[in-house]
């Protein structure tokens, strides 16, 4: 078996992905079809994010990989090792030190900068899919900017529950044109979608790439009388005391005692260290 190319993918595949990324950047929020390759990890486990990262990584990059906000969750560990092996790049767990961050389900708490690229793993890129299963139909809706179905769904939620009953993958409007799925991040993270960093989204199985360039307007869908509310558990972090972070609920004994701790392990760890 010969050695694999830098960052695993062959150059022709990278060029194809790179062209898709550039078109995604040019049309923020629009899902660009791309010829997703079979990767040596299962679909649904980050193949889209991995392909986007592989197409973007340079030898000088420092990579951070998180899953659920944590660097040490098994899938994050596995993807980080994949790139250490195939691209021999530096890796870090510190958000501020990373130049490329691949994530599943979270945006780091630390504000991202101009010098960073955030790559999302996306399971279902189509925000309208659960309202309309046909790709032919949803593509038409995006073409016509016909988002009536989405507004009806959100409105029905309010009529039934008094609020929009979507807690993650909360849809956003990008640059007043495309309704976009921010991937299954909790809606708490939605405000961070307006960022100084470039954000790239890769959906391998569904063969789509999309992008939010820096400083792009990203608005969570809502109604004037029911404004978007990025809610979180009403607790401080039990480890670092932060009151403005997204929290995991951890059950600590058989009696069901719980505690709330930061989901962003790097952020929480740094705060604990600073306090110690």
């Amino acid at each position: 078996m010969t050695e694999y190319n830098f960052a695993y993918l062959d150059e022709q595949t990278k060029r194809m992905i790179r062209r898709a990324i550039l078109k995604g950047v040019a049309v923020p929020g629009y899902q660009v079809p791309f010829a997703s390759r079979e990767m040596p990890m299962p679909y649904g486990w980050g193949t889209g994010g991995v392909q986007v990262s592989a197409a973007c990584l340079t030898p000088e990059d420092t990579l951070k990989v998180i899953d659920q906000g944590a660097d040490d969750t098994t899938n994050a560990v596995s993807i980080r090792k994949f790139f250490e092996k195939t691209a021999q790049i530096a890796v870090t767990e510190k958000t501020a030190e990373a130049t490329i961050i691949q994530t599943r389900h979270r945006i780091p708490e630390t504000l991202l900068t101009e010098d960073q690229i955030l790559v999302y793993q996306v399971p279902m890129p189509e925000p309208l899919r659960f309202l309309e299963p046909s790709e032919v139909e949803t593509r038409k809706m995006h073409a016509l900017q016909d988002y009536g179905l989405m507004h009806v769904k959100l409105y029905e939620d309010i009529a039934r529950h008094g609020e929009i009953a979507t807690a993650y993958s909360y849809p956003v409007m990008v640059e007043d044109r495309y309704v976009m799925s921010p991937s299954p991040i909790p809606k708490f993270d939605n405000p961070k979608l307006e960022s100084a960093a470039l954000q790239l989204f890769g959906a391998g199985r569904e063969q789509r790439i999309y992008a939010v360039p820096p400083h792009t307007r990203v608005v969570s869908l809502d109604f004037e009388d029911h404004p978007f509310d990025p809610s979180k558990a009403p607790h401080p972090c039990a480890l670092c005391g932060a009151e403005d972070t997204y929290l995991d609920e951890v059950i600590t004994d058989d009696a069901g005692t719980r505690m709330f701790v930061c989901s962003d392990t790097d952020y929480c760890g740094a705060r604990c260290e600073a306090a110690a």
């Binding site: 906000g69 399971p123 807690a167 929290l247």
Partner: peptide, 15 residues
């Protein structure tokens, strides 16, 4: 792949 990915951690969404 997609079916089995639901065994990956989803605790942030679940929360």
């Amino acid at each position: 792949g997609f079916l089995e990915h639901i065994k990956l951690p989803h605790y942030v969404d679940f929360q």
